[in-house]
Design a binder for these strands. Structure first.
Length: 499
RNA sequence: GUUCCCAUCGUCUAGUGGCCUAGGACACCUCCCUUUCACGGAGGAUACAGGGGUUCAAAUCCCCUUGGGAACGCCA
């Protein structure tokens, strides 16, 4: 019904960056909202940096986010191939067309000559543009040079007389460029490989792209691209330039800011729906002012009229909040499926019983911000990783602590059960209270230390039923021993601070 | 340097000339809940970069300044 067709066109030079993911997401949302198509095109004309491995990684990240494409690699489509490196003959054809029209020329300038020109221009306060002496050579003359072995690039002939190129950007409004802002730019490299601005135009046109939503850094490329559209007599698509994403220091988000790839966020235990939700909000806001949204809601509410043109800082703290909110809203069975791979990866043992899993999740959910947090939490229930931590030292030094733990252990053992219920736990706790004549934290802290090795954490009545009785007893005796020998494991936090 | 883009709480943002003594969210602080830690609940502090216009009226329109960013590649 709708003829809206958008594309995400990454270059496979590494992992999928969160900035790229945001561009992909906004394109996807727009397509879905308008009932149009979202296509994926691989811009791999930079042979030096593009790799098949990086491409596979990016495709995987896109799938992880649920941003599936209607046309592109792996799914095909009527306008393929979708890898630019496989479309070389197409680009060649249109380069010839522009050449024939006299709107481009072969240029034999060497890198050194260009560098020198740029340097001189900068010194003289002129924009660093190429001035090619080959601009007015005839194609025939150039071709004979090429036949004799000389290498040449194809340069676009930017009109000498300065005019103004303007278009209406869907997020920025009217934008105008003076044509002399750019010098003659390259269309085809000397090895015949086309360059970004050129293939971008050819492909967007041939693939019938109606709206180009891309990052702001491409804004000034639009001028060159408009010139190419003009030279070919084609109509330009609609452009929308998305504001860039900044790091906390307000500089363009890059690796030195820490995690910047989707893959890293996946490994850190973030949910794809949370990353999507958070990223969607960078440069866009819900008309309802809603903050937490499912993919379905994002699609329903997304449109270009609510895009911001100012850059946005990527705030990991807020991402964490978005993540924990999505995470806690997940049904236990679903959450378990997501936590499990993390537990397996970190060799955390757990019960196969789904009731146990669900109860554990109920107990830990309030403390879980990421799936990775599940690893720390669930290892508390794993006998193999039980240890008494440094932070328990104080509680174990209290005069009655040892007797409390001993009494606790005896009563637990005497229960004869496999697992204690919450009620049974409370009954035992009360008996310990009477027997040792302690209350408050002097009562429950030593008990908690003997259960998880730490004085703080999840409510005991939730925790205790998750551990087998004989495990509780063993843990208690280990705790007593640790207290006597003053052997404590450094707390993870303190450890981290050392580094 | 040149051109272009941008400018509301620390951060993401609402706001399209009167509804703004500027709203929401994250973070922060206080209190409540709680025999701990979290969760949760209730409050609080914090912003229209500066200067000129236009207008009865400006966060909103115009200009300048300042600040930030991007582009100026045989990268994308």
């Amino acid at each position: 019904m709708s003829n809206v067709k958008v594309r995400f066109a990454p270059s496979p030079t590494g992992y999928l960056h969160v900035g790229g993911a945001r561009t992909a997401l906004h394109n996807y949302l727009y397509a879905k909202r308008k009932g149009g198509k979202f296509i994926l095109r691989v811009e791999d004309t930079d042979q030096e940096r593009s790799t098949e491995e990086a491409l596979q990684m990016q495709l995987q990240d896109l799938k992880w986010l649920g941003l599936t494409w209607d046309e592109g690699p792996q799914v095909g489509g009527d306008f393929g191939p979708y890898k630019q490196s496989e479309r070389l003959s197409i680009y060649k054809k249109y380069a010839d067309e522009i050449l024939t029209k006299g709107k481009a020329y072969y240029c034999f300038l060497t890198d050194e000559e260009i560098d020198k020109q740029r340097e001189d221009a900068m010194k003289a306060g002129r924009p660093p543009q190429v001035q090619s002496p080959y601009r007015d050579w005839s194609t025939e003359k150039a071709l004979t040079e090429i036949k004799s072995g000389k290498r040449a690039v194809v340069r676009f002939k930017v009109p000498k007389e300065a005019t103004e190129y303007g278009f209406t950007d869907l997020v920025r409004g009217d934008v105008k460029f003076p044509s002399d802002m750019v010098g003659d730019f390259v269309l085809l490299r000397s090895d015949g490989m086309p360059v970004y601005n050129f293939c971008c135009v050819i492909d967007d046109h041939l693939m019938k792209i109606t709206h180009v939503l891309r990052a702001e850094e491409h804004l000034s490329n639009t001028l060159r691209q408009m010139m190419i559209y003009e030279a070919l007599g084609w109509e330009t698509p609609q452009f929308a330039h998305l504001s860039i994403i900044l790091g906390p220091d307000k500089q363009k988000l890059s690796k030195r800011h820490g995690a910047t790839s989707c893959h890293e966020y996946m490994e850190k235990g973030f949910l794809p729906e949370a990353l999507n939700n958070f990223i969607a909000l960078l440069g866009w806001s819900s008309p309802k002012g809603q903050e937490i949204m499912s993919m379905k809601e994002l699609i329903e509410q997304f449109d270009l009229d609510r895009m911001t043109s100012s850059p946005a800082v990527f705030d990991e703290t807020k991402l964490l909040w978005v993540n924990e909110t999505h995470l806690r809203a997940l049904p236990n069975a679903d959450l378990w499926m997501r936590v499990k791979p993390f537990l397996d990866k970190h060799n955390v043992n757990y019960s196969g019983d789904s009731d146990w899993q669900s109860k554990s999740l109920d107990a830990f959910k309030p403390a879980m911000r990421t799936l990775l947090d599940g690893v720390t939490l669930f290892s508390l229930l794993d006998d193999e990783s039980f240890a008494v931590y440094e932070e328990s030292r104080e509680a174990l030094n209290w005069t009655k602590s040892e007797s409390v733990i001993l009494a606790w252990s005896d009563l637990v053992k005497a229960s004869g059960k496999e697992y204690l219920s919450a009620l049974e736990f409370e009954a035992i706790q009360n008996q310990v209270k009477e027997k040792c004549q302690v209350k408050g934290k002097e009562l429950f802290m030593p008990i908690r230390v003997s259960v998880i090795g730490k004085p703080h954490g999840t409510e005991l009545k939730l925790l205790v039923p998750l551990l087998k009785v004989d495990s509780l007893v063993k843990r208690a005796s280990k705790t007593i021993r640790a207290a006597k020998e003053k052997q404590f494991k450094p707390s993870p936090v303190a450890e981290a601070e050392k580094h």
